[in-house]
Design a protein around this nucleic acid. Structure first.
Lengths: 192, 192, 192, 192
DNA sequence: GATGAATGAGATTTCATTCAT
DNA sequence: CATGAATGAAATCTCATTCAT
């Protein structure tokens, strides 16, 4: 972890450590040791340990929001767009597994102001996804007896949980999981 | 929080605080203050802060394992038993929401020895649930193109996520959520 | 500095150090070293370094307020009461010289809430003293062409300055200084 | 604070900040931010943060010493010269209120070598003022039962205290205060 | 002349745990 | 049974200063 600029190395070290042990279990000293710099350097670039988390958090959130936006606003049938979106979030989460793990498990460790900011962005993401589900429900493609909100929470629960059981070097590739998860989602929404 | 025996009060206080803030954000002092006792008393009954978590953790796990065992070993059709199990875990999680939240989010905060013990128990639970799914797959009631393991992880991801969005005083009752979640699971496993 | 209870030793050590070097120049570590305890012990008894200052500050302020109250509300002629009050504050400041030095120089190092509390108390003290001066002015014993407020600030400036030049083992006793200072005050207020 | 040469801007910024918060509560970063330069620039012109204080300190001291010298060595009656000197120090302190505040409150924050230098200069100032008082005492114009030293300390205590209560935009002008303070001094020295 | 990244030492505070009573 | 004083290690963060550019 001694390649790249100092801030990059710090973000990298923090990502690995937060992913492995959780925000509260990582000391600033560990982060800077792994990045090969001193604490002073870290506080030169980041206002606080929280800032580091916020940065990691924000970059995942931004990426996933952008991708969802692009996929959701495509022009295929809604079932295809939802399937693509559902699979894409898995693939990108696994490709950036450490970042995603940090994102999935450290939501509530941000300080007040940043928490609000992030929560608003998350809500936008959730709503965009829900809109896809609702679109399918209105057009009769998806079952409508389950609230779209509940279905979305259900699915993202599954996604967030990936971090606790999936192993990159296990038998299932990112694409396998993506396909299975998306299939489960599509199946669960099929009209009876 | 001044009713019941001292250990009960301590468990109660710890449950509320761990659920609200997460294990690492709660000081032993807060717990004993809320329980109306002193630190000495806490260390008289519990060996460590970790022990307190372990206790809460264990009681949820034990209860859910017992209930799953009873439901899974019933004699109705497998689809009914799976639906009942899936709904039951939601209802009991919501009925003991704070305990469940602690269970859902503080898995990795246990010390090494207890972590192993708990992990083994969790695995048994997971395997019992998976056996139900496999039973349905073998008998052709459920789709078999998605590994049972993946389906179970998918579902319990959704369940664990409840703690981050569900509110007891919201518009949906425990039974509503239970039915929706179980329906989504059954739908997702239906043969195409 | 290893006699007395732990909080007493801490207050004692802090008083000496704050008096000698000023609040900001004293590390908590120095205080606890001198008191012969650990930092943990200090934070067991005092919420912060500020608290320690507040305690010292408050005890001086309380003592001087009480003494002024008693002297001012006596029943001799106003000139005698003012002279006694002016001399008394010198004597007690010198008797508790370190405490007084801390009080005189570290006013603005308190945190916001405590600063307001202390400022209010100081104002009451100032006003009680000013009332004495005004009483003498109304009754024609003191010159009235100098605002009482200004005269009081003038005198207490002199008093607060004691800490920067007076030495307990110098040629002048507390009583000498007290008499001279009070004489200067009385002289300055004499009608022309 | 972006007019003047870089060193001037630095001195200006430091004066305001030291006056407002005290030397130890001001970070070098704040000073350079307010002056609109970088830390490198500051260390180019000044050897240390201490140096900045020393500069401010020295300029007040030099100015007041010069003015006292001129007034004291005039040829009017000693009472007039003392009154003029006493009033002048007030007026110039208020005209340069921030500088004076820094001077009044940050005496002991200088490093060893500079502290000695400054202390010597202060003593000369004190002695020149005391000489005036003694001159009046010898010639019988002032009371001689109070040591001149004590009277001078008394007066400069009052002067130094100005920084803690006087507000430039309050009801009393610099000249008002100057007159009152000088009157109090003269009154206090009058022979009984 | 001037920059600003980086240091390294030290600041205050927190906290799970122990132990004499 | 229970107390609460005390520990000691570690946590986050600050800051004057240096130095390669």
């Amino acid at each position: 972890m001694t390649n790249g600029t100092v801030p990059e190395r710090l973000i990298g070290a923090a990502t690995e450590l937060f992913a492995a042990k959780g925000f509260d279990r990582v000391a600033v000293q560990e982060i800077v040791d792994r990045a090969g710099v001193t604490k002073g350097a870290m506080y030169h670039y980041f206002g606080s340990k929280d800032d580091l988390l916020h940065e990691i958090y924000g970059s995942v959130l931004r990426m996933q929001t952008e991708r969802l936006e692009k996929i959701a606003s495509g022009d295929g049938p809604v079932a295809e767009r939802l399937h693509a979106a559902a699979a894409d979030v898995i693939v990108t989460s696994i490709e950036n597994f450490n970042q995603a793990k940090v994102y999935f498990r450290s939501a509530d460790h941000l300080a007040e102001d940043k928490r609000l900011e992030v929560r608003a962005e998350r809500r936008r993401y959730h709503e965009r996804f829900r809109a896809l589900v609702e679109e399918g429900q209105s057009s009769g493609v998806f079952r409508a007896d389950v609230p779209a909100d509940v279905a979305v929470h259900h699915y993202f629960g599954a996604v967030h949980h990936l971090g606790t059981w999936y192993h990159v070097d296990g038998p299932l590739s990112a694409e396998d999981i993506a396909r299975h998860y998306a299939d489960l989602l599509m199946g669960s929404l099929r009209v009876a």
